[in-house]
């Protein structure tokens, strides 16, 4: 394969110098070892992406050959009210819920950062939701929300506030209810990262601020929060992307219903593809979703690049 001379030739392609060694003699073995993994990744990841992009331009019901129809799928999607409802739900699910998660996590992290008896027990208990599998969470919360048997409605009836709320069965509450379960599952992630970051803030800074005339609230606002900002940016980005991708909880708890009231993109794509066998249309929606995620990630990181890498 490549020789030293050849690697010199690469200069005419303007390859940055730090990549020269990729094509050196010593790298041959490296490439050989990588090959199986690269092949497997290509098969399960790269190929499906390109296949999906291709299918987005076709009409395909899974039988026979895909029919090329150009941008027709995209035109259909954008003109659809249903699609806008799903997009709105997805935004609530992946952004509003994440903001609330972060706030709840921050609250608990602040409490756990104080000294009190039983702190490690409290920390462990609060971490538990993060360790439970999605499917178990989905079934348990469905039980909690059950109109007849659920403890939530039980409490409401007991204190006489109402005769029971159809948490999952009403289009008004469905998305909110599932999002609550999602928040419950994920706030420990924020709690733990924030707590770790808080432990890293030098105590001297708090003392200096106190001598400088700060109250507790002042030090939280002017010392704690600025220190948490870089890590907060990274974890909210991660959590938004994970939320955008998430399927299990909504699919199991409401299936996106009633109607489309709690429908989010991944579930919607799944239904279009495997219930209605509109593979072409589903692929086009998936491409839209991919674009949203990429654009969001890029803009977000660009906005806060200095805070993430700079500090």
């Amino acid at each position: 394969m490549a020789t030293k001379d050849k690697s010199d030739d690469m200069r005419s392609f303007d390859l940055p110098r730090e990549y020269y060694h990729w094509f050196s003699k010593e790298s041959v073995w490296g490439w050989l070892f990588l090959l199986p993994t690269l092949f497997a990744l290509g098969l399960v990841s790269v190929y499906p992406i390109f296949r999906g992009i291709y299918l987005g331009f076709t009409q395909y019901d899974g039988i026979g050959d895909p029919q090329w129809i150009g941008l027709e799928n995209y035109a259909r999607i954008l003109g659809w009210t249903e699609m806008w409802i799903v997009l709105r739900n997805t935004l609530v699910w992946a952004f509003a819920a994440v903001v609330i998660m972060a706030l709840v996590g921050l609250g608990f992290a602040t409490l756990l950062n104080r000294d009190f008896k039983g702190r490690s027990v409290a920390t462990t208990l609060l971490l538990l939701p993060w360790a439970v599998p999605f499917i178990a969470i989905a079934f348990n919360w469905r039980l909690m929300y059950s109109f007849e048997l659920g403890p939530l409605n039980g409490v409401l009836r007991m204190i006489g506030v109402s005769d029971g709320v159809p948490w999952l069965a009403s289009s008004r509450y469905a998305l909110f209810s599932v999002a609550l379960a999602w928040i419950w599952r994920n706030f420990p992630f924020f709690m733990l990262t924030f707590l770790a970051a808080m432990k890293g803030i030098p105590n001297d800074l708090y003392e200096a601020a106190r001598v400088d005339g700060s109250t507790k609230l002042d030090t939280f606002r002017h010392i704690t929060l600025p220190f948490l900002q870089p890590i907060a940016i990274v974890v909210t980005l991660l959590m938004s992307l994970w939320s955008l991708n998430h399927f299990t909880l909504i699919y199991v708890m409401t299936g996106g219903g009633p109607g489309t009231s709690s429908m989010v993109l991944p579930v919607y794509i799944y239904r279009r593809a495997f219930h209605l066998r509109e593979y072409g249309l589903a692929s086009a929606i998936a491409v839209v979703m991919l674009t949203i995620m990429l654009t969001y990630g890029l803009i977000y990181l660009r906005l806060y690049r200095e805070d993430v890498g700079g500090q």
Binding site: D204, L205, E207, A208, A209, V211, D212, G213, P226
Partner: peptide, 28 residues
Amino acid sequence: PRNRDIAMVFQSYALYPHLSVRENMSFG
């Protein structure tokens, strides 16, 4: 501490890293 009319210089300096020198000095 804030009601004692004191100022303290720490061994570690304890400067607020996210604030400029001007903001550090005007903080108190």
